[in-house]
Design a protein around this nucleic acid. Structure first.
Lengths: 145, 145
DNA sequence: ATCATTGTCAACCGTCCGGTTGAATATCCT
DNA sequence: AGGATATTCAACCGGACGGTTGACAATGAT
């Protein structure tokens, strides 16, 4: 099917793009897996801040916070400008979309499945138990919850 | 302010609840930080499956997949029933909500901030530069972007 | 009873991760 | 030039993580 060479190229491109997204998802999810980094993001949502300001509330070293910010930056959740010696940190809201899209996709698939299952069960109940009597159900052992 | 003892209790309860959510977020985010586990979730979105079925496509050991499923189970993303020797795995879509709620909260805060900034810039541009001439802006050094 | 099937448990290994401390860099101030 | 401020770089440490292999447990089939 199709002319070969071209479709291979396309497949490579598609795979590459998926890998890129995969890598970004790896980084974003694992960036937010740390409570300190989630707190940094939360605080950056209301205003930009310098490393020193961000580090103040925590009782870990400033260097540790700097590392956390590096992780957030590599994940794309945050960017840094330059202002004298300071390097103000800025939250990039767009990256959230990558995650929410991934999450929503599979959540919706799963929910659609549950709705189908519910519909099926309703249908069975109606056609085999229309009055509500307790007849032996036509289920094998393995189907019990 | 307030009667003391009671508010301390309440604060403890609130803190505890936040800690619990925090712990769950840690687990859910780090569960999804691994590409194999994300793939497992993706496949479970369409149908339940056994460990063996789930492990087949990957070239890692069955035990490794079993471990991955344990992580997903501990995060609450997945539950397991029992069916003879098999232990079918089932995706629990509700847990996604915890993540999406967290994400959406800060994304929206950040976006609201950008909108306010845009509005402010528009306002400044209008009142100080109505015809388009380039006057010196009333900004101190630190306010430069 | 025995055997096959399905999955988990346990111990081990190399790598990554979050933290530390100490030195280096960059910029401002005087 | 010299010092103060803000941040990063580099080396190190202990613990968690993803993977392996080998033994064990539970259930179904003969």
């Amino acid at each position: 099917m199709m002319e070969g060479g071209r479709s291979v190229e396309i497949n490579q491109l598609v795979e590459e793009r998926l890998d890129v997204d995969d890598e970004r998802l790896n980084r974003v999810f694992s960036a937010l897996a740390d409570p300190t980094r989630r707190d940094l993001v939360a605080r950056l949502a209301t205003r930009d801040a310098t490393v020193g300001e961000l580090a103040a509330p925590y009782d870990i070293s400033l260097q540790a916070v700097s590392k956390h910010l590096k992780v957030l930056e590599d994940s794309g959740l945050v960017t840094r400008s330059r202002e004298a010696q300071r390097r103000p940190v800025h939250l990039e809201a767009e990256v959230f979309d990558l995650m929410t899209k991934w999450i929503e996709r599979y959540r919706q698939e799963a929910e659609a499945r549950y709705r189908r299952l519910d519909a099926l069960l309703d249908e069975l109940a109606e056609q085999e138990d229309p009055a509500g009597q307790t007849t032996a159900p036509p289920l094998r052992d393995e189907d019990a919850s």
